[in-house]
Amino acid sequence: MDLSALRVEEVQNVINAMQKILECPICLELIKEPVSTKCDHIFCKFCMLKLLNQKKGPSQCPLCKNDITKRSLQESTRFSQLVEELLKIICAFQLDTGLEYANSYNFAKKENNSPEHLKDEVSIIQSMGYRNRAKRLLQSEPENPSLQETSLSVQLSNLGTVRTLRTKQRIQPQKTSVYIELGSDSSEDTVNKATYCSVGDQELLQITPQGTRDEISLDSAKKAACEFSETDVTNTEHHQPSNNDLNTTEKRAAERHPEKYQGSSVSNLHVEPCGTNTHASSLQHENSSLLLTKDRMNVEKAEFCNKSKQPGLARSQHNRWAGSKETCNDRRTPSTEKKVDLNADPLCERKEWNKQKLPCSENPRDTEDVPWITLNSSIQKVNEWFSRSDELLGSDDSHDGESESNAKVADVLDVLNEVDEYSGSSEKIDLLASDPHEALICKSERVHSKSVESNIEDKIFGKTYRKKASLPNLSHVTENLIIGAFVTEPQIIQERPLTNKLKRKRRPTSGL
């Protein structure tokens, strides 16, 4: 017993010596996670971090007073192994002897410093981030199933929210409404489509400006004509009531908005009720001829604005009016007729031209339509002016008669200019590109209106002035400009410049 007691005391002394060697000089306990400095002193990692955080910048070693920084600290694995072995020896000594260790306080702390507990403390002390800490805590505590279930439920809930957000973003663009038309193969669909197009076009005519009305009406008319041609002859009974509906809707729209509806009346003529396609083609032919005449008058307007600064050229074209007008009339009417003589009366030419125009518009179905009313009214106005011209010709002399006839021709041009508003800008460009020769010939008609105004002003003063002067240069210039014009009389060319000069002198006297 005595020997055993001596041996136990010796073992205890050895353990105490080893414990003092492996103590931390700051906390005076076994080193936890030993860290060595540049001066080869060993301290606990937790104690050194606490010391360095007390001051900004480098701190001093507690043993040798040298500078220490966080970067200079290094882990010493050898001392950590020695500490672990010492703890194992102490545990074995207690089991063999059955005696508690003399320094129970220190031993209890040593026992608490088992490797499992050290790992837990290291995970908390090290600044490795929240995710690494959570992982280490889960690994160190596998015995708690409640914690695992809560963490898994949190992760699953987070994943569910992310997935639901993604699915919502994908589903939202798919919620856009999609309209699908289910059509049938019955023959009544074509008639319904035609009526739908006509009503939609009328609404567009009321909303859209004048520049786009003609294009819309032309497209709708083409669509309706194609649909009529596709149907068989057996379905004509269905077409006639639908066309009557079209007429009623167009008349109502014309009564409500007459000014807006006139812009599309000329282009919509071939959508009118037709028994066969031949009647629609004839109407299209007549409309094309009318559009040609209207576009020519538009060309004359532009030329008149350009040549208004040259009064000499405008005056020299006075007698070329009849010849150029004959050529335009021959090209406007498709019928083959002989040219009228140069010395014939211009009023007779106008009456013949009106007689040619009237039969074209005397179809029984055309008179029933609303768009032809505008053309009939313009023709009636022309006839009224010609009836007035006959009365004026009986009273005035030959020279005054010529000037009045020219004035009436200008009035006719004004009437025809009203129809110019109905034609589109695209048709003007096509006419100029296809028929430049006709445009040059028809330019002379509009330029002549300037000389007509001068004659009217001469009649106000009650006299006409003449001068025997020749202007050969002007006649040559005008002959080169206009290709299809005829030779003019030299006496009238000489008379016109004198009248304008005298007018300039006598205007201030009349004002006084």
Score class of each variant (00 low, 15 high):
Leu52Asp: 02
Tyr179Ile: 04
Cys64Leu: 00
Val14Glu: 04
Ser104Gly: 08
Ser186Gly: 09
Thr231Gly: 00
Leu28Glu: 02
Ser146Ala: 11
Lys110Ile: 01
Lys88Asp: 12
Leu6Trp: 09
Leu6Gly: 11
Gln139Gly: 08
Ser184Met: 04
Asn112Ser: 02
Asn53Val: 12
Arg166Val: 07
Ser123Glu: 14
Lys45Gln: 06
Leu165Ala: 13
Glu141Asp: 03
Glu188Tyr: 03
Gly129Met: 07
Phe46Val: 00
Thr161Ser: 10
Arg163Gln: 04
Ser186Ala: 08
Leu138Ala: 11
Ile21Ser: 05
Pro115Trp: 14
Gln169Asp: 02
Pro58Ala: 06
Arg78His: 14
Thr167Asp: 14
Asn53Thr: 03
Ile68Leu: 12
Arg163Ile: 14
Thr37Ser: 09
Ile26Cys: 10
Ala102Asn: 14
Ala92Val: 02
Asp40Val: 10
Ser140Leu: 05
Arg166Ser: 04
Ser153Cys: 03
Ser146His: 09
Ser184Asp: 13
Ser220Lys: 10
Ile90His: 14
Pro145Val: 11
Ile68Val: 13
Asn53Phe: 14
Asp40Trp: 10
Val8Arg: 08
Leu95Gln: 10
Pro34Arg: 02
Ser72Arg: 04
Lys135Glu: 10
Ile31Asp: 03
Ile90Arg: 07
Asn158Val: 05
Ser127Val: 12
Asp189Ile: 15
Lys55Arg: 11
Phe79Trp: 14
Glu10Arg: 14
Ile171Tyr: 15
Asn16Ser: 13
Leu30Cys: 11
Gly129Phe: 00
Glu111Gly: 08
Gln155Gly: 10
Pro145Gln: 04
Tyr105Leu: 12
Val162Ser: 09
Leu118Gly: 08
Leu159Ala: 12
Tyr130Asn: 03
Phe79Glu: 02
Leu118Cys: 05
Ile42Ala: 02
Glu143Trp: 09
Glu29Lys: 14
Glu84Pro: 14
Ser104Asp: 13
Arg131Tyr: 03
Tyr101Asp: 07
Lys175Gly: 07
Ala134Pro: 14
Leu52Tyr: 01
Ile90Tyr: 13
Arg133Tyr: 14
Thr167Asn: 05
Glu116Asp: 03
Ile31Gly: 03
Thr176Met: 09
Leu152Phe: 14
Val162Lys: 12
Asp189Asn: 11
Gln19Thr: 15
